[in-house]
Nucleic acid binder design. Sequence first.
DNA 1: TGTACATCAGTGAACGCGCGTTCACTGATGTAC
DNA 2: TGTACATCAGTGAACGCGCGTTCACTGATGTAC
Lengths: 209, 209
Amino acid sequence: MREAATAEIRPYHHGDLRRALVDAARRILENEGPSALSLRAVAREAGVSPAAPYHHFKDKGELLDAVAHVGWDMLGESMTGAKARAASLGALMTEIGVSYVQFSQQHPALYRVMYDCSRDKDMLPEGMQDNEDSAYCLVRETFRKVAGPDVQEVDIELATVAAWCAAHGLAEMGGFKQFDPLKEGLGGEEAFLRAVLGHLGMFQPSRPA
Amino acid sequence: MREAATAEIRPYHHGDLRRALVDAARRILENEGPSALSLRAVAREAGVSPAAPYHHFKDKGELLDAVAHVGWDMLGESMTGAKARAASLGALMTEIGVSYVQFSQQHPALYRVMYDCSRDKDMLPEGMQDNEDSAYCLVRETFRKVAGPDVQEVDIELATVAAWCAAHGLAEMGGFKQFDPLKEGLGGEEAFLRAVLGHLGMFQPSRPA
DNA sequence: TGTACATCAGTGAACGCGCGTTCACTGATGTAC
DNA sequence: TGTACATCAGTGAACGCGCGTTCACTGATGTAC
């Protein structure tokens, strides 16, 4: 069969079905939203039978977890990329915040799955675990650098939590129509984001102390 | 039948089924969470046939809207009640914020439905409409009073948005296990809430200007 | 006050649907000799 | 290099389930005369 494996005829064994399923799930999220994300739909989108995914995932939840994991990786990359954009250490927190919220706007359904997977679970979402290179730690360490050595540990932690919550709230609510006139008045989506973040204390260099 | 209408034997006509259905829905949310909230489950809980709700609601969405509406009323009352608790005008915003987040913690499933109903809709959630006595306007008018006359309208609006987003984020994430040690260190849930809100600029009297 | 009748607010059975998951199977692959 | 065979990764049909909604119906209520 291998010699006949043209683009149309998929070989019996897929080769990398696990990844293909996660990709299919992301495509469904992108095109139809979280409510369309069933195991069967994912299998359909990937072009395999509804039973095939069970050779790669214990159940639907495990597939969703894998999708969420990819999401957290993407978000982490996006936030790390903000480092490059920041003109100064003082501006870094704002850039990270903007990155975070923009990611949620570019991938709203994926963003939703990322948090839905974490709810009612003992495990934390990947991006918020205490790994050295998690997104959460990126924020905390940035605060630590900005704040300087004479700021208490608990305040750094609190500033991180506050920033994360604020960004998450903005991510979830940024699309509300209520805000449209305000956005227009300010000159667009990103200007709006920056203005709101500017009103949140810990996105300014002097506050976390 | 009216004379035989004891507690056990429900008369054929319910009398106030609409309200009973909304109450049943809230009970289901309280006990089993949002994923258990089907039309059939609500009818079951209310003790009527699955077709009965259709005499009071066009479809499932309309029932959910009614449930969400009750939620927004409750939240509004809770926030208005914060006025009484606030020692000073300066402390008022913090008390409103605490009220908001505590409501979400006391009614997590209802809170979720309130926002789920708003998503993908043109209409805004009740609590955020521009009615004089919506929760959103309560926050904005509080900011206006705190800020004084020489603050620009756009800054009051931005502070309101920022506060709302921050509170919403805290409401959604406050239950994360990540924060448990921090909560303990600070002396409990409410202390944690107040500490986080304290790090958010616009919950302090001097900032919105 | 009684009665005919329209209307209202329920019933319960049924519809089709998509879901998550299981099952016996089979085609393809890799390995031991 | 061939061959037997275990293992892997698919298939497709079927399971039971709960869902939202519709339908013809019926019991109860209210109103006109």
